[in-house]
Write a protein that binds this DNA or RNA. Sequence first.
DNA 1: GACCTGCTGCGGGATG
Length: 716
Amino acid sequence: MSTFDKLAPFIQDYIYRNGWEELREIQVAACDVIFNTDSNLLIATPTASGKTEAAFLPVITKLYNEPCESVGVLYIAPLKALINDQFARIEELLREAYIPVTKWHGDVSATAKNKLLKKPSGILQTTPESLEAMLMRRKEQAVKLFSDLRFIIIDEVHNFIGEERGTQLISLLERLQKLTGMIPVRIGLSATLGDIEGAEDWLNGGTERKCITPDTGVKRRRAVVMVEHFYEFAFQEKDKKNEISFYDNLYELTRGKKSIVFSNARSEVEKNIVNLKDVAKKRGEPDVFMVHHGSISASDREFVEEQMRLSDLPLVTGATVTLELGIDLGDLERIIQVGCPKSVASLSQRLGRSGRRSGVSEMCFLFEEEKRSESTEFYKAINWSFIKCIALIELYRENYIEPVLPERYPFGILYHQTMSFLYSRGEASPEVLAQSLLSEYAFRFVTQEDYKELLRYLLKIGHIERTENGGFILGTEGEKIANHYDFYSVFESDVEYSVREGSHEIGTLTRLMQPDTTFVLGGKSWMVTEIDKENKNIYVKSAEGKPPTVWDGTGEVIEHTRVLKKMKEIITTDCMYPYLGDGAKKRLAEIRQVAAGAGLETKEIFEISPDTYGISLWLGTRALNSLDYILNKLLPDRKFAEPYWPFLIVKNVTKNELMDALDYIRKNDVTESDYIVPKDAKTFGKYNDFVPENLLIKQYVDRYTDVVEMKEEISL
DNA sequence: GACCTGCTGCGGGATG
C-alpha cells in the first residue's frame, strides 16, 4: 500500500482538489515515522518544502482512524499571527472530516474557549503563555481537555530551543504529561537547525521516546547574494559628487521588486522607509513602502502581511526580526539586509523568505559608515560588522548554522515554574516539589542543594510560606506576582503608550511624548496633539518632514568561535569574494591593509601604547570571557580590560607579564575556579531578582563562559 | 537590556 493510500479519504480528496501531483519526499518520510513507529519526529527541511502538511497529513489520518476522547493534537507556535495563519490552512483541510480546529490564545473569545471545554476534541492551537495560564487557572479543565492527547506539534522549534521561553514550554509539556498520564508523540518543525542532535534532545525532553529526523536530501534553494558598502554621502570624495546616495541605491535595488528591507533596529527601519518614500516622491513614482516591527499595532501589521501576500504591486516592507518567522507573505523577489545579520541562522531564515516561485533566493547586504579619521587606533578603523557579514555568508555557503547552547541552570524559569506549580496545586511538600520539578528535563542539571537554596530564599522574601504540615504554599508577595496576568510570560515587557490617530492605533512608544513634538512611526511623520497619561494614550495628527525616530542602540549577541576564526581568515588572506560590489571590494582591501599593518595574521599580542596591549586570539564570546576572567586572577594589577570585540584590551601590564600569563594558561590545568568574575556580570531575566546571587553567578558562568573551549583554542 | 514574543477573570455598560 502506498503512502497516499494510507491517508484518510478526505485528505486524498484534498490532495486531488489542490492538484498536487505527488507527495513531497518529507511528507512521505513523516508518514512513515508516524504510521510505523512511536518515535518523536523532527522535520528539518528548508522553507516552502511542505513541513506543515508533512506533520498534519499523517497525524490527522491517525486521528480520523482512531478518534480521541479529548483534544487529540496540541499545536504550539511562538506567535499568535502564526496560529491565525495556520488556522485557515488546517481548517480547509479538515472541512469534511468533522474534526474541529480551535485557536486558543489571548485574542480568542471566552465563548470559543468554553465551546471547546464542553466538548473537547480535534486540534487545539495555542502559545506557551496560554498553556501556562490553562495549567495555572483551570487545571481540572486542562486535564479533561487533554486526557487523550496523542500528538504535540511545535512549530518553529529553533525559536524555542536555547531560550527561556523554550525551557518554560518544555517544562509545561512535562507537567501536562504528569497530570494526564499521557505521553504524546512530539513533532518539531524548523527550517533553520544547525544542530540536529541538540534539537532532537530538546524535543525528546521528558518523553523517553526516540526522535527520528528524516534525511530527505532536500537541498535548499540556490541563493544569489551581493554585498555593497558605502561611505556616508558627506564623506564621499569631492570629485564624485554625482555619485548617488545610499538611499538612491536602496531604492534602485527594490524598485519593481516585491521585497523586504531588514534592519537590526526599529529606528533604522523607520529611517530607511522614510528616506525611500522621499526618493519616490522626488522621482514622482508611487509610494509602495510599508513598515513592520514590534512597535507597529497588530492590526496594521496584519494589513501589511495581507498586502504583501495578495497585492500584485511591487511592495517594499521595512522590517526587523518580526518578518523572519514563517508567516505567509507570498512570493518575494528580493531581500535586502541593511547592516549585518546577527547569526548564520538569522541570515538563512531571512534568505529563505525569497524565491519561492523562481527557485532562486536573492539577498543584498548593504553597509553605510562614516569615514574615520586616519589617526584612530587600527582596530577601530576596521568595520567589524562588515567583516562579520562576509564571514556569515561564507559559513552559510559551508552549510554551517550555529549550534544551540543548552541552558543547564535556568534558575529564573525554575522560580517561575515553582510558583506556577504551587499556584495550581495549592500546597506541596518540599519533597513533592523537588520530585516534580527537578525530575523534569528542563531542570535536569539543577542539584537538590541549589533548589533548597532557592526555596530558602523564597521563604525569606515571602514568595512562599510554610504551612503547619510543613508544606509550601504561595506567600503574600508571591501571590501578588502569580495573580497578575503578566505572570504567564517569562520575558519582560516595557510600559507602552498607545499612539492613536482618532480611534485607529498606529503603534506604541515606550516613552510619553509631549504635545507638539514630532516623530516617525510606521514610515509616517506625526505630531502629538494630546496625551492621556492615565490610559497611556498619545493622540497624534499627520505631520510633515522627517523628524527623528524614537528608539536607539544596538545590542550584543553571543558570538561563536567559528565565526571569529572565519573573520580572521577573511581579513588575513587575499581571497576575493565574487559577491562583493565595487565599494565592498574597496573597503575589504582597506581593512586588509590595516590588518596587515598591525600584523594580525601572526601576532597574538599587539602593542597599543607602552602599557596597553591587545590580545587577538579570535575567540567567541564565551571563550573570550573565560580568558578575561582568568587574566583577572593572574594579573591582579591589570587596571582595565576594554572588551573591544573581537579583542581583549589590557592596560597597566608589560608585554612579558602578558606573555607569561598566556603561557601559564596553556601549560596548566585552569578551570572555572580560576575565574574572577566582575560584579556586574549577571544574566538578565524577568524573575532573576528572586534568585539568590550565587545561583545567578553559577548561571552566568555556565552560559557566558567556556573554559574548555578557551583552553583548546589557545593551545592550538 | 537591541530585537522579538505573550496575557486571566472579573465587572460594568451597551445592545438586541
